[in-house]
């Protein structure tokens, strides 16, 4: 889990990289929920999944347009 100082830096960097035009209040809201978001993402890196293939589908044939 990042320290609070790093949370603000991480949120600011991600927002700037994505180009989101946040207000200061919106930035603070993201700072407050970021640790929980990261904890949720990090929780999926479990040993049971170590050799699993992702559930992604690719076909080289494009779909018919509706």
């Amino acid at each position: 889990m990042p320290e609070p100082k790093d949370v603000r830096a991480a949120v600011t960097a991600a927002v700037e990289a994505a180009g989101l035009p946040l207000t200061d209040a919106e930035l603070e809201a993201f700072v407050s929920i970021y640790p929980a978001l990261r904890a949720g993402a990090d929780s999926l890196y479990i040993e049971a999944v170590r050799y699993e293939e992702p559930a992604l589908v690719f076909t080289p044939v494009p779909p018919v347009q509706g």
Partner: peptide, 17 residues
Amino acid sequence: AFYTAADYVQAQRFRSW
């Protein structure tokens, strides 16, 4: 914006499992 590409693929790997 706060999730990485690896996070997304990991979620899809968890999904398979």
